[in-house]
């Protein structure tokens, strides 16, 4: 595993992207799991615009791992959390988009070099949790940035879905919602295909 000592997150993510890209070459050589069809299976009718199908699939699986399950919480697929993040990334563009893309690539391939033996999307649920647990306690600034960046996005968007509020003990707004054309709520998403 890379052990970076620089302080620039931007620099880290560039390094992360390069590392993941290098591992991807191994994938092409047959070391890793299958490609396009493998990722398309995670889409379940979603059509990402800012992220590629592959990046969207990794985000979906990472979101499930980061959110977990408890009580009457809906699933990240029911809340379309990854699609809402994709929508937000299509609005904000810039550094956030490139950082998230590089982070997802890293998450997908780095487990192979961390002793897990397969890509993130091919791992069993318990292995994904173990890998995330490892990331959550890392001292590596690149991995720390990747983990906390994805964690914040995923948790914020998941828990801004009103179906999660009962679990939080939150009664919701005191005024009516108003649709915002530049928003990122589920109402802003295209219907599932």
């Amino acid at each position: 595993m890379l052990k970076q000592v620089h302080q620039s997150r931007r620099g880290f993510l560039k390094a992360g992207g390069a590392t993941a890209a290098g591992i991807a070459i191994l994938g092409v050589a047959g070391v890793a799991a299958p490609g396009g069809e493998h990722y398309d299976a995670f889409l379940e009718g979603e059509s990402p615009t800012a992220l590629s199908n592959k990046e969207f699939a990794v985000l979906t699986v990472a979101s499930e791992t980061l959110i977990g399950q408890a009580g009457d919480l809906p699933s990240v697929r029911e809340t379309r959390t990854a699609a809402r993040i994709d929508r937000e990334l299509s609005m904000v563009q810039g550094r956030l988009l490139t950082d998230v893309k590089a982070s997802l690539l890293y998450i997908e391939y780095a487990p192979m070099l961390a002793g897990f033996g397969s890509r993130f999307t091919c791992m069993a649920s318990s292995e994904r949790t173990a890998y995330m647990e490892r990331l959550s306690h890392t001292d590596d600034a690149l991995e720390r940035s990747i983990f906390f960046g994805l964690r914040f996005l995923t948790i914020f968007f998941f828990y801004s879905d009103n179906r999660t509020w009962n679990h939080l003990g939150y009664g919701g707004p005191l005024v009516d919602a108003k649709f915002y054309s530049a928003g990122n709520r589920i109402e802003n998403l295209e219907g599932l295909t």
Partner: peptide, 26 residues
């Protein structure tokens, strides 16, 4: 009715960087 108390909507409406900007080092 623009201030609808929804955090996601309101970050997008009124916050710079749509509320998601950080320093380079996060």
């Amino acid at each position: 009715g623009d201030f609808d108390q929804l955090s996601d909507n309101m970050l997008a409406r009124i916050d710079g960087g749509r509320g998601l900007d950080t320093s380079v080092n996060g």
